[in-house]
Design a binder for these strands. Sequence first.
DNA 1: GCGTAGCTTGGTCGCGTGACCAAACCCTTT
DNA 2: AAAGGGTTTGGTCACGCGACCAAGCTACGC
Lengths: 224, 224
Amino acid sequence: MTKPFDAAASIDKLLDVAAGLFRRKGFAATTVREIANAAGMLPGSLHYRYASKEALLVSLMERAIGRLTESVREAVASTRDPAERLRLALRAHLRVLLSDDDAVYVMLYDWRAVSNDTAREAIVRMRDTYEAFWDGLIYEAAGSGQIRPRIDLKLLRLFGFGAINWVAQWYEDHAGGRSPEQIADAFWAFMALGVFAEDRRPADEDGAFVALGGAAPPLEPVRR
Amino acid sequence: MTKPFDAAASIDKLLDVAAGLFRRKGFAATTVREIANAAGMLPGSLHYRYASKEALLVSLMERAIGRLTESVREAVASTRDPAERLRLALRAHLRVLLSDDDAVYVMLYDWRAVSNDTAREAIVRMRDTYEAFWDGLIYEAAGSGQIRPRIDLKLLRLFGFGAINWVAQWYEDHAGGRSPEQIADAFWAFMALGVFAEDRRPADEDGAFVALGGAAPPLEPVRR
DNA sequence: GCGTAGCTTGGTCGCGTGACCAAACCCTTT
DNA sequence: AAAGGGTTTGGTCACGCGACCAAGCTACGC
């Protein structure tokens, strides 16, 4: 029996290089030979660890969600202020997304590649749990009165995820030296205060909000 | 010589079904046989129109950018108010993204698949032009004083694109009967006014904006 | 220092792929 | 009615893919 440390490290290396290749070329366009080669092993050795290329992908995605969840939970634990918890969660999510580990990127964008139904459902369930955690954070902020009434909280999460997850598309080219934290904070400020100039806002802001197209839906309770 | 109308229609059909397949399965995982079959022709006939699968993809993406550009330009022409132009542009972009035509989706998300450098650069150039047009719209709104001073306009565009382009990921499952226009307007309202409750905002909002992480960069001039 | 579980080696196998083409087949123009 | 270009047909071809495995090789526990 080889040292367990080595085995774990070797699996980690494998997932790391696979994530990098999947991100750069896409899952379908990456061959197992490439992955094995980049990880410094022969294809047969890869096969020994993962029965199929797709099994490796699933493993990769599970790791991605695990790291996201862990990182966000940890970030959020340091305060009880709902708005601050949201801001810290945003930072943590973006930090993991933009880290050296490409697994989160792959999970977000190479999504359709998982053809096995069981595996797919397992990942969807993990994603749902993660998103429900976010809904909980948002719902708490709304419940404590920090969010404008009649805001559609589900839309808020979806827009937030979109803006933040999209950062991975442009960060390398357009970050301009900004850290993930700075970008998260900037988005936070945009979303929290809005970008309209003060003297151009409609006077009655709630009415104006609806007039501008703001959603006024029934507040669905959020499971946590 | 066959009627030109038929030829054009046949190309359109081809691009349509290819876009659908690329969106559902990804470019690399879709075979030319599948595309040809779905378009009601034999692989050889497809080859007659496009020398390679990638040439078809490039054609698809060019059409996507063309439709986006056309739609947004048209939408914006109806008013001179910069803020309103932005809102209408947002609507138009989202409308095309969520339309039956999957080409825009493919362009946004199956991006890495174009390996040919020349073709890739051509598409990048078209994308840049489109984004520069958006920067122009945003810059005008800022210039007319409708946007809070010291907002990083480039970040604003990037966040906006992220939130809106991400809608394609969830629209089918979570739209809840909302039209693309309603969703665009909701995002517009979020971004314009912010989601913080009035009585929870910091008093001096510009100072608070920076304190909350809002960017305060030099305003780069935007080419149009 | 032996046994054996854990892992690697160096290959094979059959399949589906993208690309390609010569011949047949229209349909329009003359 | 003949010509001829645009288009389709039905097939071929070489290649690289994912999967797989029997045999060999450690190195650790005993």
